[in-house]
Design a protein around this nucleic acid. Structure first.
Lengths: 136, 136
DNA sequence: AAAAACTTTGCAACATTGTTGCAAAATTAA
DNA sequence: TTAATTTTGCAACAATGTTGCAAAGTTTTT
């Protein structure tokens, strides 16, 4: 994971600082999308709140990660994988009603929606809920 | 709108207080979903922040309104219409990239997604983005 | 219609969350 | 190794949301 983190940071010209490396490792290690609090709790050492917020912002700006908005306004973060690049217009995620885990889904099985008169769609996000592979 | 507000409150056994009536009228008058700040700004008189938060919570609990989470964590609120009742498993909304307006969409034109092995879907939400009827 | 029972409101205090400026420390480039 | 640049942590601040409680309002009962 360390290697992968270094590569991701290098690709986006982000300097290899401990906070960035550790946050990225946490996200890479996790099978699911994490809230900022979850990321903070999984870090091996303490970093200032400010630094974490700023790091999240940098990652988002550079598209190293993307955010997923849940019903109610909670936000989770997940690493943006290469295979997602063709998918910028379309994100699909799964929310588990049992464990609250959030997983990125492949877009393959979705059909683009038709719009009512006057509305022109340029992209869309889908949030599926149900039970994840660990909770069935 | 006054009448409609009274009916909606009555249906859910919510007492007919000025704050509730006015908030509901604002939401009924609006063609699009509103943030709490937008609701507050459209109110004809001042109500305490606390009261507005509590009223939103009551409305959500009683399903008078529903919340729509946008990318980044912003939340909008819209009245839950009767025709949406069969649609509890499925919400579709439109976000306008120009004016930031949020509109409820009918679900008719969406095809349910297929899930990867081990995941069982029980419902899903779609957030389409693009240009709304006023911005084309 | 008036009184009693119950609910909602507004205020104050507090907790949480996120932002900004700036000097110190770390990273990268020369 | 030094110089230039960027990031970090702290402090202060701003914004957002919550809780307890007395006063005011709404609904129910008589």
């Amino acid at each position: 994971m360390q290697e992968e983190a270094f590569v991701l940071l290098g690709n986006k010209n982000l300097s290899r600082t401990p906070c960035r490396v550790e946050m990225l490792k946490v996200l890479l290690d996790s099978g699911s999308a994490l809230s900022d609090a979850e990321i903070r709790n999984k870090l091996p050492q303490h970093f200032d709140r400010t630094t974490i917020y700023r790091t999240l912002r940098s990652f988002l700006e550079q598209d190293v990660i993307h955010s997923i908005a849940l019903e109610g306004g909670d936000v989770r973060y997940a690493v943006t994988h290469h295979k997602d690049q063709n998918t910028r217009q379309f994100h699909a995620h799964f929310y588990c009603d049992s464990c609250s885990g959030v997983y990125c889904l492949s877009r393959a099985s979705f059909v683009p929606p038709q719009m009512p008169e006057g509305f022109v769609a340029s992209g869309y996000d889908v949030l599926v809920n149900g039970k994840c592979r660990n909770c069935n």
